[in-house]
């Protein structure tokens, strides 16, 4: 395996899980990676992030709980105005509304993609808020909330299975809600990574 690969990924791991001392472990992985495949290397790096995150969360359960509460609170704050916005969009896309001499309307398919947009922004914002409020812990405090969000696709899947039986996997029109909810944990993680990025600039300014 190429020896230049580890430099970037070891930096990434230190960014994602900064609260743990990984120096000896990363040295071991770098040394052993010369005799192993890339798959092994990436698997080991993934394990460093997961095990490190678990240890961080396990060692600070109250902080993890606080992070999860911040995530839920952000969702509530984001979705409260979103419900009002959805009502307006529904009225406008299902006909429209006169405001003085003007006829305000939206394309009829707007109501289909607006919820997905609101979900994406809302869940990304919750990930961002958690990462920003726990910057010294990287993404570790994000994981309990991301796991909680993973429960949403599970609920949707159970709900679909209850109504449709095994046919849920061969009825494409009904899979829409499932695929959109499957993307929610990804939105949380992407929001978290965006929340981490300004730290680097601040650290550079300090140094």
């Amino acid at each position: 395996m190429a020896t230049h690969l580890p430099t970037f990924t070891t930096r990434l791991v230190k960014r994602l899980v900064p609260s743990q001392d990984h120096d000896a472990l990363l040295g071991d992985i770098t040394e052993e990676a010369r005799h192993r495949s890339r798959l092994w290397y990436w698997g080991q790096m993934g394990a460093v992030v997961l095990v490190g995150s678990w240890r961080d969360v396990h060692g600070r359960p109250l902080l993890a709980l606080r992070a999860t509460v911040i995530g839920i609170a952000t969702l509530v704050v984001m979705f409260a105005p979103a419900v009002a916005l959805l009502r307006v969009v529904r009225v406008l896309s299902e006909g429209g509304y006169y405001v003085g001499p003007y006829w305000l309307t939206l394309p009829s398919n707007t109501i289909r993609w607006i919820p997905a947009f609101i979900n994406t922004v809302g869940f990304a914002a919750s990930g961002w808020a958690i990462a920003r409020s726990h910057r010294s812990h990287g993404i570790t405090m994000l994981l309990p909330f991301a796991l909680l969000v993973c429960g949403i696709p599970a609920i949707v899947l159970v709900n679909l299975a209850t109504h449709l039986g095994p046919w849920i996997f061969v009825t494409p029109p009904r899979i829409g809600p499932l695929s959109s909810t499957l993307s929610l944990p990804v939105c949380v993680l992407v929001g978290g990574l965006l929340g981490l990025s300004p730290v680097r600039k601040q650290q550079q300014r300090r140094t």
Binding site: P6, T30, E31
Partner: peptide, 10 residues
């Protein structure tokens, strides 16, 4: 620290 370990100590 050794070079094959990216300068990290065992």
């Amino acid at each position: 620290p050794t070079p094959e370990r990216g300068g990290r100590a065992k």
